[in-house]
Computed example of a mutant assay.
Amino acid sequence: MIRPDLASLMDKLTDRDYAILGDVERFRLLSTKQIQRLHFDACHPTPAASARACNRLLHRLREAHVLKSLDRRIGGVRAGSAGFIWYIGPAGERLLANQNRRKSQNRRNYREPSRHFVEHTLAVSELAVTTIEAERQGVFEILTIQSEPASWQQALLAFGTTLTLKPDLRLVTASADYEHHWFIEVDMATEHMPVIMRQCAVYDAFRTTGRYQAIYGLFPAVLWVVPGIARAQAIRATLATTGGIDPALFRVCTPEEYLSAVADGDDHEFRQPVPDRT
C-alpha cells in the first residue's frame, strides 16, 4: 500500500472502524461475536440485525486489508462468518503506526498461531469483553483494563536484576467509594501445578519489591480464572501447602464466577478510596 492509498483509506474509515481496529490491537485476537458485543449489540434492535451489520463492516475492513482472519475458525467451517477470528492486517498496521508515530511492523513472515495461543488469547479477550459489558450495565466503572504487553510490570531486584511480571490482564475498577486492583491470569488447565506455583511465586516476589505500591498505594489481588471447580480446588489446595507463597494474595474462580469475583472486591487489602478527580 503506497502512501496516497493509506491517506485515502484514512479518509474512508469511520470512528467505529477505528474503535474496532484499536480493540483488535489491544486484545490481539477478537472473534466476530466479541466484536459484535463490543460495537454493535447496543445500537441495533435485534441480535440478527447486529450480526448483519457487524459482518458487513468486518467484510469491508478485510477487503481493505485493515483486518485479517485466521484460517482456524471457532466451530469450524460450518460456523460461517460468526466463527472468524480477527487480527490486525497490513493496512491496519500501517494505520496504527501512522496514528502512534511508530515504525510499521514487518508482517511478511506471519505464521498462523498455535491452537493453544488462539484459545488462551480468546479466553483473555472474553474476560475483557465481559468486563466492558458489566461497566455498560452499571456494575462498576473501569479505570484501567490492559492486556499483554501493556499489562506488564517491571521492578529491580537485588544486584540490579529486572523482574518482569506478565499478567494476562491488569484491571482497575471503581464502585461506590473504592477502586479495586486486579492482576488476572487465565489458566487453561494445560500447565502442571509446579508451573502454576512458580508463576504465583513471581507475583509474591514482585510484591516484595514495593514497586507497584509506590505508584498506586496498594498491591493488586491476583485472580486465577480456571476452567472448572476441580481445577480451582486443586490450585487453592496447592497454594495453601506451598511454602514461600502467601495464599492470601490469590483468588481462584471459574469463568462463570469471574464477574461476581471482580464486582465484589471487598478485600480491604486490595482496595482503596477513589481519588478525588475534581
Rank of each mutant, 00 (worst) to 15 (best):
P4G: 10
D5M: 10
L6R: 03
A7N: 05
L9D: 02
M10F: 14
D11N: 15
L13F: 05
R16G: 05
R16W: 06
D17M: 06
D17G: 07
Y18F: 15
D23R: 11
V24H: 03
E25R: 15
L30T: 04
T32C: 04
Q34A: 13
Q34T: 05
R37N: 14
L38M: 06
F40D: 05
D41I: 04
A49T: 02
A51N: 09
R52I: 00
N55S: 07
L57F: 03
R62L: 09
L67I: 06
K68A: 12
K68C: 09
K68Y: 01
S69Q: 05
R73N: 07
G75S: 08
A79H: 04
G80M: 08
S81M: 04
S81I: 00
G83N: 10
G83K: 05
F84D: 05
I85Y: 03
W86G: 03
W86T: 04
G89P: 08
A91N: 15
E93K: 15
E93D: 14
L95S: 00
L96P: 01
N100F: 00
N100S: 15
N100H: 14
R101E: 12
R101P: 15
R101F: 14
R102Y: 09
R102C: 06
Q105H: 10
N106A: 08
R111A: 11
R111I: 11
E119N: 11
H120C: 06
T121D: 08
V124Q: 03
V124R: 02
E126R: 09
A128R: 00
E133L: 15
R136T: 11
Q137Y: 10
V139D: 05
V139C: 11
F140L: 13
F140S: 03
T144K: 13
T144Q: 13
E148A: 09
W152Y: 12
A155W: 12
F159Y: 14
T161M: 15
L163D: 11
P167W: 04
D168G: 07
L169A: 04
R170W: 04
L171H: 10
T173K: 12
A174G: 07
S175Y: 10
W182L: 00
V186Y: 05
D187P: 08
M188Y: 05
A189T: 02
M193K: 02
R198I: 00
Q199I: 12
C200D: 02
A201D: 11
V202F: 09
Y203V: 02
D204S: 15
D204L: 04
R207E: 12
Y212M: 08
Y212P: 03
Q213M: 09
I215W: 09
G217E: 08
A221L: 01
V222W: 01
V225I: 10
V225R: 04
V226G: 05
V226A: 12
G228H: 10
I229V: 14
A230K: 12
A230R: 13
A230N: 14
T238R: 07
T238A: 12
P247C: 12
P247K: 09
F250W: 01
R251S: 03
V252S: 07
V252Q: 01
C253K: 00
C253H: 02
T254C: 11
P255M: 05
S260M: 10
D264I: 15
D264G: 14
D264L: 15
D266L: 02
E269K: 12
F270A: 13
F270T: 13
P273S: 11
